[in-house]
């Protein structure tokens, strides 16, 4: 049994947040991934038991969403956006470079279990294209060389900062955040970068502003 009593307790805690417990299923499956590194059969059965639904229902849900993995991912799970904008602006090259560097393809872990790679869809970061994610934290505006460098540094155990977010932790740590989002890291790293400030800076430089209250034309 990989699901400890403590995890079961946390599952119940999640369930109690919602007017109807089943609403907690998605966070609960994230919690399963945070302890098991994937959605395990034990995890499915534990969710089913806590919510009083069938394991098949949990399986149906867990297989619908791409973030739930049916086989182990790496300690660090790397995503490269290959949707039109990122892909054509360089994401394809980034993916190829990482695939070569890691020796794995889409949704495959490296033999040492350190990394896994995934071709991912649009991450709502097109302004920062091409983007990759490590454990779902952004590494924006990346080049193939920069992407490989991220892997190299992680492999050496060096700290790698997300370009918008805290330092990279692990796949399982992020999955825990997805279950319990108030993870105390909101103040870590930068979240607002040059691209997010592009308009504001332009406006300031050119003395543009919204009319203030009571200033309407």
């Amino acid at each position: 049994m990989t699901i400890s009593d403590q995890t079961l307790e946390r599952m119940r805690e999640l369930a109690s947040r919602y007017p109807q417990p089943r609403s907690a299923l998605l966070p609960m499956l994230h919690l399963v991934q945070s302890v098991d590194g994937e959605v395990t059969t034990d995890g499915i059965n534990a969710c089913a038991e806590v919510l009083g639904i069938s394991p098949a229902e949990v399986t149906g849900v867990s297989t619908f969403y791409t973030m739930y993995k049916r086989k182990p991912v790496g300690e660090h799970h790397i995503g490269v956006c290959v949707n039109t904008l990122c892909g054509l602006l360089g994401g394809d090259a980034v993916y190829d470079a990482l695939s070569e560097r890691l020796g794995v393809g889409h949704n495959e872990p490296t033999a040492d279990g350190k990394f896994s790679l995934e071709r991912i869809e649009c991450q709502a970061a097109c302004t920062h294209a091409p983007v990759m994610t490590v454990d779902w934290e952004f590494i924006d505006d990346v080049t193939p060389a920069a992407a490989v460098d991220v892997v190299d540094r992680l492999e050496r155990g060096e700290q790698v900062l997300s370009t918008r977010g805290p330092a990279i932790r692990t796949f399982q740590a992020t999955e825990h955040t997805l279950a319990f989002p108030d993870d105390g890291l909101a103040g870590e790293g930068t979240s607002v970068d040059d691209k997010m400030l592009a308009g504001l800076r332009y406006a300031k430089e050119h003395n543009m502003s919204a009319p203030a209250h009571g200033q309407e034309a």
Binding site: E137, D183, A186
Partner: peptide, 23 residues
């Protein structure tokens, strides 16, 4: 009396910022 903010899972940094703000 109940509100939910459904944030796509792939963006933990948005999630934690909002969760922090809610707290």
């Amino acid at each position: 009396n109940h509100a939910f903010i459904y944030i796509r899972g792939e963006v933990p940094n948005a999630l934690r910022k909002v969760a922090n703000a809610v707290a």
